[in-house]
C-alpha cells in the first residue's frame, strides 16, 4: 500500500475541501472496498479523508418518503423498521450482499461507490481501461464469465457488483450530493454510468462531491416485491444475475412495475421495456415471460457469459412470480 496522509474531517465543508484540490485524495468511511483496492494497488490515494465523524448516518421517514444518511451502515439500513415495513425490497437486497461483518462496516454512500469485481480491473498486471485509460481491456478476450451482457462497450465490459444499488434502482432513489459548487440531486438511474468511451468513470460524481444522503420516494411496493440473487454458492458471493422486482397490483392488474437487474451491466440495469409490458397487464406467468423476453433482446453476451442471457430471463420471471405470490 502506497503511503498516504490521513485526515479526519470534522465537518462537511472541510471534508470536501480535503479532496477537492487533488485527484489522488479520497473519502473513506467503511473502507470495505477502498482498503481492499488499496491493498491490491488498484487504488493509490495519497490522502484519505475520514468522513465517519460527520453527522450523516440518520435514517428518517418524512412525508416524501425516506431519507437515508450516506453514512448509515448497510446493516442499520437493512434492519431499520421503517425500511422493513415500507421498503422491504431494499432490505432484502442489502441482506443478499456481502456478510454480516461487512454490512456492519459498509456505508450506504460507499456501497454506491463500490467498484467492479472484474478480475482484470483487480489485477494491476493486466491491461484495463477502467484502471488505466487507454491500456486496453483484457476481459473482452479473456475469461468473462462474470461480465456484462447489457450496455458494455468495446472499452469495458465490467459489471457493478452491488445488490443494494439494484434495490435502490428499482425504488427510484435519488442521490443527494454536496460539492464545492453547491448541492445537487441525482436520480439513481443517472448516478452510475455505462462505460462508453470513459470506463474509468463509474459514476457522474465529481471529485469534489460528497454523497450526503439517499432519498426514497413513497413507495407502493411494500407488498409485492422480491429480490432474487443467483450465485455460485448459497451466501457470501457476488451475483451471477440478480433481479429486484416490485409490483403494485390493483384489482388483479399491474398498476406499476419496477425491474432492475444486477450482475449484468456496468450499472444496475433498469428493465424499462419489461416494466412497460407489465403495466396494465394481468400478473400472469405469460406476461412475465413476455417482459423477460423483451428485456434480454438487447443482451450482448461474451464467450463465457452466454448463460447469463437465459439466466436473466428466467430470473426475471421467477422474481415476478415470487413478488406476486408474496401478498
Amino acid at each position: 500500500m502506497k503511503p498516504f496522509s490521513y485526515v479526519r474531517a470534522t465537518n462537511q465543508n472541510t471534508a470536501i475541501q480535503g479532496v477537492a484540490d487533488r485527484q489522488s485524495a479520497k473519502f473513506i468511511a467503511g473502507g470495505t472496498n477502498l482498503i481492499d483496492l488499496m491493498k491490491v494497488e488498484v487504488a493509490q490515494p495519497d490522502r484519505l479523508v475520514d468522513i465517519t465523524q460527520l453527522p450523516l448516518s440518520e435514517i428518517e421517514i418524512n412525508s416524501d418518503g425516506l431519507r437515508i444518511g450516506a453514512l448509515a451502515r448497510n446493516s442499520d439500513l437493512a434492519y431499520n423498521p421503517e425500511v422493513r415495513s415500507h421498503y422491504p425490497l431494499l432490505s432484502q437486497a442489502i441482506l443478499a450482499g456481502a456478510s454480516p461483518q461487512l454490512r456492519n462496516m459498509a456505508t450506504v454512500g460507499g456501497n454506491l461507490m463500490q467498484r467492479t469485481r472484474c478480475y482484470y480491473f483487480m489485477d494491476i498486471a493486466a491491461p484495463c481501461n477502467k484502471r488505466d485509460p487507454g491500456a486496453g481491456c483484457a476481459a473482452i478476450e479473456g475469461y468473462n464469465r462474470i461480465h456484462a451482457i447489457f450496455g458494455a462497450s468495446d472499452k469495458c465490459i465490467a459489471t457493478h457488483p452491488s445488490d443494494m444499488c439494484v434495490g435502490l434502482a428499482a425504488l427510484d432513489a435519488k442521490v443527494r450530493v454536496a460539492g464545492s459548487n453547491g448541492d445537487r440531486i441525482i436520480p439513481i438511474a443517472d448516478f452510475h454510468r455505462l462505460p462508453g468511451d470513459i470506463p474509468e468513470r463509474d459514476t457522474v460524481l465529481e471529485q469534489d462531491e460528497l454523497i450526503v444522503a439517499i432519498d426514497l420516494p413513497n413507495s407502493p411496493f411494500a407488498k409485492n416485491y422480491h429480490y432474487l440473487k443467483v450465485r455460485d454458492r448459497a451466501s457470501y458471493a457476488f451475483a451471477l444475475v440478480s433481479v429486484a422486482a416490485a409490483l403494485e397490483i390493483e384489482n388483479g392488474t399491474i398498476k406499476a412495475a419496477r425491474i432492475a437487474l444486477g450482475g449484468v451491466a456496468h450499472k444496475p440495469w433498469r428493465a424499462f421495456v419489461a416494466e412497460d409490458i407489465l403495466v396494465g397487464a394481468k400478473p400472469t406467468e405469460e406476461t412475465f415471460a413476455a417482459a423477460a423476453t423483451a428485456t434480454i433482446r438487447e443482451a450482448k453476451p461474451y464467450r463465457h457469459n452466454q448463460f447469463k442471457v437465459e439466466m436473466a430471463k428466467r430470473a426475471i420471471v421467477r422474481a415476478l412470480i415470487n413478488a406476486t405470490e408474496k401478498s
Binding site: 469485481r117 478480475y119 482484470y120 483487480m122 489485477d123 498486471a125 493486466a126 483484457a138 478476450e141 479473456g142 475469461y143 462474470i146 455460485d232 454458492r233 448459497a234 451466501s235 457470501y236 458471493a237 457476488f238
Partner: peptide, 25 residues
C-alpha cells in the same frame, strides 16, 4: 481456479471469487 489463457495468470486468486463452501451451503 481459473487461469487466463493468454497470460497464464490466475484470475480468481482470492476467496471472494474462488468459492470455498460457506456455512449456508
Amino acid at each position: 481456479t481459473i487461469t487466463d489463457p493468454h497470460t497464464g495468470r490466475i484470475v480468481n486468486d482470492n476467496l471472494a471469487e474462488y468459492h470455498l463452501p460457506v456455512n449456508a451451503d
